[in-house]
Design a protein around this nucleic acid. Sequence first.
DNA 1: CTGGAACTACGAAAGGCTTCGTTGACACCT
DNA 2: AGGTGTCAACGAAGCCTTTCGTAGTTCCAG
Lengths: 128, 128
Amino acid sequence: MSRGKLPRPTDAELAILRVLWDRGARTVREVHETLQDGGGYTTVLKTMQIMTEKGLVTRDESQRAHVYSARLPRESTQQQLVTDLVDRVFGGSPARLALQALSTKKTSPEELAELRQLLDSLEKESES
Amino acid sequence: MSRGKLPRPTDAELAILRVLWDRGARTVREVHETLQDGGGYTTVLKTMQIMTEKGLVTRDESQRAHVYSARLPRESTQQQLVTDLVDRVFGGSPARLALQALSTKKTSPEELAELRQLLDSLEKESES
DNA sequence: CTGGAACTACGAAAGGCTTCGTTGACACCT
DNA sequence: AGGTGTCAACGAAGCCTTTCGTAGTTCCAG
């Protein structure tokens, strides 16, 4: 069951994954304390147990307080969710999603530059 | 209940909305026939009734076969979902999402040009 | 008028998510 | 040894989503 594709994380699961990504491996108590709105301790615990079953996280049980880690790096999950959204709502066109995303809020000059760079390399590719 | 923010559509609801956006106002039967994998007729009907309660769609009951329309245009819902994803997984940065989206699949030269144009106008704005 | 087709409405079942109370284990302190 | 605090495990409840069977209505053809 550790093989195969991981399910799309739910909202509560995503909140926990964010903590794990931001701070690295953590115990339930630490995650619970970081999440101000994550519900009670046992709620977080239960969710993390389910996430373990699903393979979304792994845990080290060698200590009394089990230490959990995200199984996939943040980028993989972002990729999964983006692909998902593109397929479900943007007719399979990542560019449409990108356009929609950018036309919303303001973006820093640094990010704009980064995007331009990516755009350049993509255009270069398509020329080849 | 028609006021206030609409809930994020579920996957099944999104499939139905796509039909309504693509083809315009439709009866349950028409939606059901368009969706090859949408389950039985009553499944689609039930879902659309729930969507009506939620305000995701409106219906015209003047005919025997009620005619349903998406309440919000496609773009609004795309916007909602993009904002949602940006907040939940991209730390509030639309540009990060855009980068992730573009680095995945290939994008047509036309779309690249469109993106470049948007980028230009965004940079012009930030200069002002 | 009667039967069947096309509909809507209703309700229930199954599964998933979220929440939490309770229990039991373990460790530490006194 | 007894008490306290920390922890995992379990189970159940409540809610939502998805699915579908059934019942009732309306319309039309014969």
